[in-house]
Amino acid sequence: MKLAESSRPAPRPRSVVLWPLAGLCLLVLLNAVINPAFLKITLLDGHLYGVPVDILVQGSRTLLVALGMTLVIATGGVDLSVGSVVAIAGGVCAVLLQSGHGLGLTLTLAVLAGMAAGTVNGILVARLGLQPIVATLILMVAGRGVAQLLVDGQVIIITSAPFEYLANGFLAGLPVAPLWVGACYVATHLILRHSALGLFVEAVGDNERASRFAGLAASRIKALAYVFCGTCAGLAGILTAANIRAADAYRAGENMELDAIFAVVVGGTALSGGRFVILGTAVGALLIQTLTTTMYNLGVPPAIAPVPKAALIIGVALLQSDRVSRWITGLLRQRGDT
């Protein structure tokens, strides 16, 4: 029975994306009915403005973190430290810009900081064989301390205009943040799905031992997934700092790991690993952001916003569970018989 369950072929990614996409469409429709101005996009000074544009801009950070998280979860792990890494990268940016360093150096070092954090996680998980939750919990706890140490517990204001452009600027009338985050998605998709790399990641997540026997450098692939996730978190840190024009070591990236995991799971990537859907993650992340925006529009206090999120997580988890899917197929079959 156990064997039969695990050898069941995984559902095709295409059908997996349909669910969150349907959810997103439903949510957008609901918004459009309640508030007809929701879908209105205006051109102001040659820039696009409107709620959908706002959702894309505000959702960019979650999109980035969720992209890295997708690969980590595909290897059967999880990275809890992304929120702290976001805070660290933001701190690095603020400190360097404040002391008058160039934008190029600042961005490079911020990304490198994220990469370094990811490497630490990768070594702990892949080399030392620690449980991903524990290994990344260490950096999650210590990382926020490091970020606060970096900025000396202050909120550092960033005044660099080119730096702010990365998050709030416009390119040919289009908001720049979703553009480059989207480019990251396309690049990742091309690299993973148009080479064997994506398959390797899924193989390691499905059965690490078997993939090793098949000749894959399983632990290296696993470690690389964490490095990639750290890098994404570093980029998201830059985006966060640029968006609010400050480095806030206390609040930056807070609960971001939860949103990212949530986006990945809603997007159809199994938490048990072995399968990933990059497009699904993008849809999942946008779904969350739309949900948040919807609640703002409905006048729900932001503090209560977690409740519908929780309901959605439980619903999605139930839909993914074997017991419920058996029950549903049984129900459908019954109806087919009569």
Partner: peptide, 22 residues
């Protein structure tokens, strides 16, 4: 439902915190 404890208690976190602020 054999759901991962990590995910369900995460939902619990959101739920309880939201209810508290409610």
């Amino acid at each position: 439902y054999r759901l991962p404890p990590f995910l369900i208690t995460l939902a619990g976190l959101f739920l309880a915190r939201g209810a508290a602020f409610w």
